[in-house]
Amino acid sequence: MSATVPGSVANHHYFDRDLDCKAVKLLPSEYYVTTDDIALTTVLGSCVAACVVDLDAGVAGMNHFMLPEDGEPGTRGQVESMRYGAYAMEVLIGEMLRAGARRDRLQAKVFGGAAVLANMTTLNIGDRNADFVLRYLKTERISVAAQDLRGQHARRVCLLPKSGKAVVRKLRTQVDVQSIQREEGELLRRLSAVNKNTGMV
């Protein structure tokens, strides 16, 4: 069973040879909630992914958000709002509860928030994302079972829902690093354009 917020539910299903199982790959601004024995995977630079499980209910979910701040209410579409941590966390937890999870049993593992481009450090996006997700989970009283945040390396994260185990691999190969750097460069350009238009620094 998967969650049903239109447009932002990950839909890239594939067979993961490394994990030897079916998997769903999450892209930025997506999430996925499942009760099936299917791996959830994503690749992170400055973005953060929260992996949340209720092992007793057999419900697990993951999101992938790009920025810590919430979108302004009423000014953004649902998919674009998933870029923002506050909305992405709210949707993920809400869909997990609808799938049968209980808030008092939720456990989280959080990853990402790296500074993979030198000029990303001026905006501190990775640090801000990492700070946000830890603050959010503390406020919501959801325990953090594991974390691998900040640093300079991109990460590939795999969540195995049935066990709640998360596998993290730092990406160091040229192809992986260049791919993430392109994505981060595009994010940086978009943020710079937004900041210019709004007068923000």
Score class of each variant (00 low, 15 high):
S2I: 08
S2V: 10
T4E: 09
T4G: 03
V9A: 09
V9E: 09
V9M: 09
H12E: 10
H13R: 07
Y14K: 07
Y14E: 08
D16T: 00
R17W: 01
A23K: 06
K25W: 09
Y32H: 03
Y32N: 02
T34V: 10
D37W: 10
A39C: 01
T41D: 00
T42A: 12
V43T: 12
C47K: 05
A49H: 02
V52N: 04
V52Q: 04
L55T: 02
D56M: 13
D56A: 13
V59W: 01
M62I: 12
M62D: 02
M62K: 03
N63A: 03
F65C: 14
G74D: 13
R76M: 15
V79I: 13
A88S: 11
M89G: 08
L92N: 07
I93F: 08
G94N: 11
L97K: 03
R98T: 04
A99K: 13
Q107K: 10
K109N: 02
K109L: 02
K109Q: 15
V110Q: 11
G112W: 10
L117N: 05
D131Q: 07
L134I: 10
R135T: 14
A145F: 06
D148L: 11
L149W: 03
R150L: 05
G151H: 05
R155Q: 11
L160I: 11
R169I: 02
K170Q: 12
L171D: 02
T173Y: 11
Q174S: 15
D176E: 15
S179W: 11
S179P: 01
I180W: 10
R182I: 14
E183R: 12
E184S: 10
G185C: 06
L187G: 03
L188V: 00
L188A: 07
L188F: 08
L188N: 06
L191E: 12
N195C: 10
N197H: 06
N197A: 11
